[in-house]
């Protein structure tokens, strides 16, 4: 285990390398954005004639965000294996730093997607959030939850043959608690009739924080075995 300051610096080095690679190749971002914007357009055209309640709208939003995460977040690890760069990374970086860097990269990538998808969703669905601050918090914590579960699953499936299918199959049950709470908190942000909404959202926000912390802590414990064995 590296010291925390070294771990931070080395994780940031991995993050910077991934961002630079992504900037030059658009390997993950183009796939994720293409999927999310297309899915969002299909959803909005399909349901626009109907008046949906906040729960249904929130569910649609997180379905788009979840599947966009599925289409892109595994790539940070899969790419290392496919380009055969994983070996150089294994002999030079600590497992903790690789995990930290990949987690940060997935958070940045999914945050960028959410920053585009959420406003576009509100626009296309002609929805005005009753509590914008709560919506931002729900989107940020939901993104963290998705990134934290996707990162460890991506590491597990990256050396398997049927990576895409395996990633989705493993990600769904593991992401469900976080996804469910993100939908709940988003629905409350769209509904916004205080104080009931605040009470309901507070519970979901707590679950999202606990879920992300649990995923990151358990991933840090497991990652060395996943990465090196």
């Amino acid at each position: 285990m590296t010291s925390s300051s070294n771990w931070g610096r080395e994780s940031l080095a991995v993050l910077w390398k991934d961002l630079l690679s992504e900037f030059r190749t658009r390997y993950s971002l183009s796939a994720v954005l293409l999927f999310s914007v297309t899915a969002l357009a299909v959803v909005s055209f399909s349901v626009s004639p109907y008046s949906l309640d906040p729960e249904a709208k929130a569910a649609f939003l997180w379905i788009v965000l979840f599947f966009s995460a599925m289409s892109g977040l595994s790539r940070s690890f899969v790419r290392e294996e496919e380009a055969r760069t994983a070996l150089a990374l294994r002999v030079s970086a600590s497992a903790d730093a690789v995990y930290g860097g990949k987690l940060l990269f997935n958070i940045v990538l999914q945050s960028a997607v959410a920053a585009i998808v959420v406003p576009l969703f509100l626009l296309l669905m002609d929805t005005r959030p009753a509590n914008p601050a709560l919506l931002v918090a729900a989107a940020a914590l939901g993104t963290l939850a998705l990134a934290s579960s996707s990162t460890i699953i991506a590491a597990i499936v990256s050396r398997a043959n049927a990576k895409g299918a395996l990633f989705a199959v493993l990600a769904f049950p593991l992401s469900l608690p976080g996804l469910s709470s993100a939908i709940g908190a988003t629905a409350e942000a769209l509904r916004g009739n205080m104080p009931e909404a605040a009470t309901g959202a507070a519970a979901d926000i707590r679950v999202l924080i606990a879920y992300s912390a649990l995923m990151i802590a358990s991933s840090l414990l497991l990652f060395d075995y996943v990465w090196n064995d």
């Binding site: 390398k17 630079l20 190749t25 380009a83 055969r84 760069t85 070996l87 002999v91």
Partner: peptide
């Protein structure tokens, strides 16, 4: 370590 299996990041 040097190996034929060791590759660098082509885009960097």
């Amino acid at each position: 370590f040097i190996s034929p299996d060791l590759m660098f990041y082509d885009e960097l």
